[in-house]
Structure formats: C-alpha cells, structure tokens
Design a binder for these strands. Sequence first.
DNA 1: CATTTCAAGTCCCAAATGGAACTATAATTG
DNA 2: CAATTATAGTTCCATTTGGGACTTGAAATG
Lengths: 178, 178
Amino acid sequence: MTTAKKSRKADPRGAATRGSSRFLELLEPMMAAPGVARDAYRISLVGNFFNGPIYLVIQKQFGLLRDEINTLFCLAHFPELSQTDICLVMGRPKNSVSRAISRLLQRGLIAVRDDPDDGRKGVLSLRPEGYRLYQDTRRLFEEREAQMLASLTKADRATLDRLLTKIMASHEDWSELF
Amino acid sequence: MTTAKKSRKADPRGAATRGSSRFLELLEPMMAAPGVARDAYRISLVGNFFNGPIYLVIQKQFGLLRDEINTLFCLAHFPELSQTDICLVMGRPKNSVSRAISRLLQRGLIAVRDDPDDGRKGVLSLRPEGYRLYQDTRRLFEEREAQMLASLTKADRATLDRLLTKIMASHEDWSELF
DNA sequence: CATTTCAAGTCCCAAATGGAACTATAATTG
DNA sequence: CAATTATAGTTCCATTTGGGACTTGAAATG
C-alpha cells in the first residue's frame, strides 16, 4: 500500500493532519490528472456523500423513499403537476415516479383529480399532511446544505448559485431525456 | 394543469421559446422559494440528468457497472489501493465495492496481490486491458462534461473548479461516513 | 371519421443495491 | 501474552430500481 512503509506506526504526516485526511490524499492526485472530468466526478461525489445519506435518514425517519420526498418537494412549490411534469423536473423515469405517486396517494400525502382536458393525465396536489412532512425534511436538507457550504464565503455561495443557475438554464443542451 | 387553458393549441410562449422549456418553467419557481436547499437540489439533478445516463451508456457499451467504472478510475490515478481506500474516496458502501472488485478481477481488468504488511488487505492495481477500457470511458465523461459546462465562460469554469475544491477539502465536516 | 401515430401512466420482471451478520486478521490493553 | 476490540473484506437476503411491454386516451393523417 502507498501508505505503508515498515514501521506501521501510522504515517506521521497523515496522523499529524489530524483525523484521516486520507480522503484528500487519495482524491487530490485523481483531480490533478489531465483530461479528467473533475467537475462531473466531484458533483457525483456530492451525490454519494451528501444526498445519499440524507435520503437514508429520511427513509428511516419518515418512511419516504427518494422519489417520494422529491415528489413532495415538487408539489410543495408547484401546486398542480402531472406525473410527467414530475418526471421532467426531477429527471427520473416514469415508472419510478408512478410508484412513488401511488405510495404517496395511499398514505394520503397527496391528492389526484382527473385532468378535465386530458383523460390520460391526473392532476396532483399536496395534502396538508404531505406539506407538514415536506417541511420537516426541508429543514434537514437546509441544515446539511449549510454544513456543506460552510467553507465557502458569502460571495462564493452567491457565485455557486449563479453557476448552477447557468448550468440548469442550458440543461436541454446536455441532459439526457429519460 | 397550469399549462392548459382551453384552446390547447399549446401555450404559445412555451412553444415560442423553442422546444419545451417546460423544465425551466417548473424548476424556476421551485428554486425561487425561500428556505430551499437550492444547491443540494440542483447538484442532485446533475446526478440524475448527467451521471445517471452516462453510467447507463457505459453499462450498455462496456458492460461495466457504476462502481466498476469508478473503481477503474480510482486505480488509473492511484496505482495501488485497497478496497477500503476505494470505498473512502468514492463514498460507497464496502459490499458494493467488494462486488465490483470481484467482477473486475474476473474480467481480468485489475489485479490483486496480498498486502505483505496486513493479511486482511489486498493491494489492487490496474491491468492494461482495464486501463484501455478506462480511457474509452474517460473520453465519454470528458465530452459530456464539456457540454454541460458549455454555457460557462472560461472564468466561470475556473471558479466552479475552485469552489468544488473548497467543498471537497472540507468534506469531513459535512460528509456522512458509510 | 377510420386509421395510424403518439403521449400518459401502469405493470412485470430481472437486475442492482445496500444493511447486517459473519470470517479472518490486526491492534490494544491489562 | 491471553482476552478484547477494531478493521478488511465477503456473503446473504430483502428491498429498490428501471427497462420494456402494455393499456388507454389524444392527436395527426388521408
């Protein structure tokens, strides 16, 4: 192993840096390599380290799966949506969203009515209990996002926001349709 | 539906904006709401729209699963790693990594030898065929990342890089240990 | 207005995923 | 240096996931 020499008293530098910053020790050379999709990789890491664990907590604590909580999120900010809309804005396949919807309906967290203009569509909306649940999870996300961005200055954060807005605005040029 | 009025000749503004920018129409109000983890949400969207589809292509084209290709990536830039190292730097659970490793070994894409200093560990490394495969997928990522970042100026891109570096450097303060 | 094409949503099933229990080795401690 | 605790890695199994086929209703075509 790169780490090990002989006297495995633990490498002093690593230990000195307090805690295992083994992570950075490993990541840095990977990010330094030329021709690497650095940004894509790190964004995907955020997914693994940040989003994944949150969804896990939400599942344990509220019994809501990833697509379920995200559906509540959508409906909390856009009061009437079809299933297709939700697929579109979340970037998720329609069978997964379908499943999420039916579980949310069963639990009484959302409501549907038929779309008077299109017999195939349903019009979804949030019910009070769903809104309450959403608010609880929202806090969780907010707090943890704050931790993640804690190392950024206020200006940095504004910049990040601006860049993500730009990236999302051009979303049709790079995103794959599910 | 919000869209629909009566004459469902398709809403002219949406149509005028060319193609369905329905996505932005839906996303904007969600991102404008106060108290929303905007950055976390959009980063997770990148995962859905960008990473997900790439992994799908790689799976179809090369028969490599997500954890498998990421393992090759790690080994391509850090020549000797243990399984635990890979878990750490990828933010993935160890059973998933274990499975990935055994499939890569079976296909002859990587090699293991026993760690002389620790009987529990294996020392993993890339074999030429694995490196070749990695190079092919690397190109894919690179091209698609370029598309995603196309709307950013050169300066923007440098800034994004700087911000992600900062966020990753503080990773221990916000990431959940798997 | 019959026929064909397309879109919304559901269902089925094979595959992927990850928690938890387990094995084996290493480190710690009294 | 036995007993205990911790770490690396594997196996098992229940759950989640998503492609694809299918059903039903809307639009387009001739």
